[in-house]
Simulated assay, not measured.
Amino acid sequence: MTAGPLIVAVGTLLLAGVDGSGPYVIEVLPGSLLQGLGMAVVVAPLTATVLAAAPDALTGIASGVNNAVARAAQLLAVAALPVAVGLGGADYADPGAFTDGYRLAMLACAALFALGGALSWATIRNDVLRS
């Protein structure tokens, strides 16, 4: 639960440096692979932790809530992130403004992933899955 978000943060930092000057394999692929690896490392333990923390009679509800929260967070990120980094209507047509907004968004996401990793390290008990 700690390593996954930190791996995703590193991948996101790599993607913040994408400027189109190099080939895909060098510029985009490493960051994308790290993001995918990090998400694979975090999603299974997160789901297992959520389901293990719920009483047996409520595991279906816990699974549904887990999925609903994940989908809502994805929608919120897509809708709110551009606004949070200052991208608006005409900025999407201006390559310079769009690039600046993209970099700022990637840095903000990397910081949030790193914060998530630190928060999980500090707050998630290891004994939940042993019950």
Rank of each mutant, 00 (worst) to 15 (best):
M1K: 07
M1S: 12
T2I: 08
A3D: 05
A3K: 01
G4V: 08
G4E: 04
G4K: 01
P5T: 09
L6K: 09
L6R: 06
L6I: 12
I7S: 06
V8I: 07
V8H: 00
A9G: 05
A9S: 09
V10C: 03
T12P: 08
T12C: 08
T12N: 04
T12F: 02
L13D: 04
L14T: 11
A16P: 01
A16N: 03
A16L: 01
G17N: 12
V18F: 05
G20I: 09
G20T: 10
G20L: 06
S21F: 00
S21M: 02
G22M: 09
G22D: 08
Y24N: 10
E27H: 08
P30H: 06
G31A: 12
L34M: 13
Q35P: 00
G36I: 11
L37E: 11
L37R: 11
G38L: 06
A40F: 13
V41L: 15
V42Q: 15
L46D: 03
T47H: 11
A48Q: 09
L51Y: 12
A52M: 00
A52T: 03
A52I: 06
A53C: 03
A53Y: 00
A54H: 13
D56R: 15
T59C: 06
T59D: 04
G60W: 04
G60L: 11
G60K: 09
I61A: 15
A62I: 11
A62Q: 11
S63M: 10
G64C: 13
V65W: 02
N66T: 05
N66W: 04
N66Y: 06
N67M: 14
N67L: 14
V69A: 06
A70P: 00
A70K: 14
R71W: 13
A72P: 07
A73W: 01
Q74R: 12
L75S: 15
L75E: 09
L75W: 07
L76D: 03
L76C: 12
L76S: 13
A77G: 13
A77I: 09
A77T: 12
V78T: 09
A79M: 02
A79D: 04
L81K: 03
V83C: 00
V83D: 10
L87R: 06
L87G: 02
G88F: 13
G89C: 01
A90Q: 14
A90H: 14
A90L: 12
D91S: 13
Y92M: 05
Y92K: 03
A93P: 05
P95F: 01
A97T: 03
T99N: 07
T99P: 00
D100A: 03
D100S: 02
G101N: 04
G101H: 03
G101S: 05
L112F: 08
L115K: 06
G116M: 14
G117Y: 04
A118P: 02
L119F: 14
L119R: 02
W121R: 15
A122I: 07
T123K: 05
T123G: 02
I124D: 07
I124P: 07
R125V: 01
R125W: 00
N126S: 15
D127R: 09
V128W: 03
V128I: 14
R130F: 00
S131R: 15
